[in-house]
Design a protein around this nucleic acid. Structure first.
Lengths: 217, 217
DNA sequence: CGCCTTCGTTAGAAGTTATAACTCGATCGC
DNA sequence: GCGATCGAGTTATAACTTCTAACGAAGGCG
């Protein structure tokens, strides 16, 4: 992005085709999930035949990893942009839900069922901690002190096990808030996106905002 | 189960072989996830070749559906047995976590990333509501009334949208407790099983029991 | 004892990922 | 401008997968 225009036409074409491949991949994933993604089908859709895609991605796994990276990047940018626009933790919560509902399978690419063997590359875990940082920033103000014995016990644990927030000056109360923000909202969101609430007759948004109110009270 | 012994030896053999197939399937799923399950590989492991398995399952989808059914059945039995042994909501929470840690992929078969097209058969949703019933039973006693305006608003919503608990006499406060039990614990559990906490240096069990204390306070 | 159901086999179609070898066109250096 | 080189896309092929079809062989049942 910094020094543009220095790219050869070949690199332009290559980048453009890579993007086009990923575009088709996202459509397939939205339709049939990540397990139903087929390189062959993408190639057919693009009018070229099979192995041509291997010029652009080493294989199916690399394509999926790239999509996971993009998903993380998109979430991190969304969270960061929302935070920079002055939103509080509640604002982040609503932004998270909107982002998830916008493309459920993209959410599941990040937080869904993992493949036992798979380990994300380091740069992806960097983005993940970037997200956590933004959460910790937003969890700072209005730091509600522990209001139950259970809360303070958790805060004590977090005060001693804060490796994940080592570079962040947030106090234990903020650590606890950020963590609960993550786990509680993910709990509702993942069940909602998986359709576990359908047929129950309740409104997930009501549950979600209730938890959000509780967290930012 | 009721009138046993009336089965022909063929039916016995058939049931035994079906069970053996499922056993190998579980091992494969534990090793490579549901996406990595291969009928062919199972057949090879059992010393028979390929299409023989189609005598016992109509196809890969039916086998997976059967495994999902068994997973639900196992969870429902575990929850019900724990509840019948006099455990309270906290006891159910610990039983749930133990059950999930015992076989993470089995947990993900129920609560993991859904395949967009898939709809569970009715008998499976019956088991799901059986689980919810046990939760509602346990959420009954010690029904903490709403202690924040947000809580009471959620309870008001649940009082009017209680289709999922239509056959259960639990008051709105119990509905809320059971629901939060489900979503909050699932949030932590699914992130833990997915390995999202690894490298963070915190103990998921601490977080889990903290939420559990909070729910049963 | 004979029939008949059911099991397990091999053969094959249609799909997938992925590699190898090759052609052709564009780009780059001279 | 011209030749050499690099890279895109092709087809062919191997090794998988699910799943159907047709066949042989073994068992249980009347």
């Amino acid at each position: 992005m910094a020094i543009a225009g220095k790219e050869t036409p070949r690199e332009r074409y290559r980048a453009q085709l890579r993007a086009e491949i990923k575009q088709h991949a996202w459509e397939q994933i939205a339709a049939a999930g990540a397990a139903g993604l087929s390189l062959n089908a993408i190639a057919k859709q693009m009018g070229m035949s099979g192995p041509a895609l291997y010029r652009y991605f080493a294989g199916r796994d690399e394509l999926i990893t790239e999509l996971i990276r993009d998903a993380y990047r998109s979430l991190a940018d969304t969270i960061r942009a929302t935070a920079d626009s002055g939103a509080d933790l509640a604002g982040l919560g609503h932004a998270l839900r909107a982002w998830a509902l916008d493309d459920p399978q993209r959410y599941f690419l990040i937080y869904g069922t993992p493949v036992p063997g798979y380990h994300a590359p380091d740069d992806i875990t960097m983005i993940a901690s970037e997200i956590m940082d933004a959460l910790l920033d937003a969890a700072q103000p209005g730091g509600t002190p522990a209001d139950t014995p259970g809360d303070s016990r958790l805060e004590a644990h977090l005060a001693e096990h804060r490796g994940w927030a080592a570079n962040h000056p947030a106090p234990p109360a903020a650590l606890r808030r950020a963590l609960l923000f993550w786990t509680r909202l993910h709990g509702i969101l993942s069940l909602e996106l998986a359709g576990q609430f359908t047929g129950m007759g309740l409104d997930p948004a009501e549950l979600y905002t209730s938890e959000l109110r509780h967290l930012t009270r």
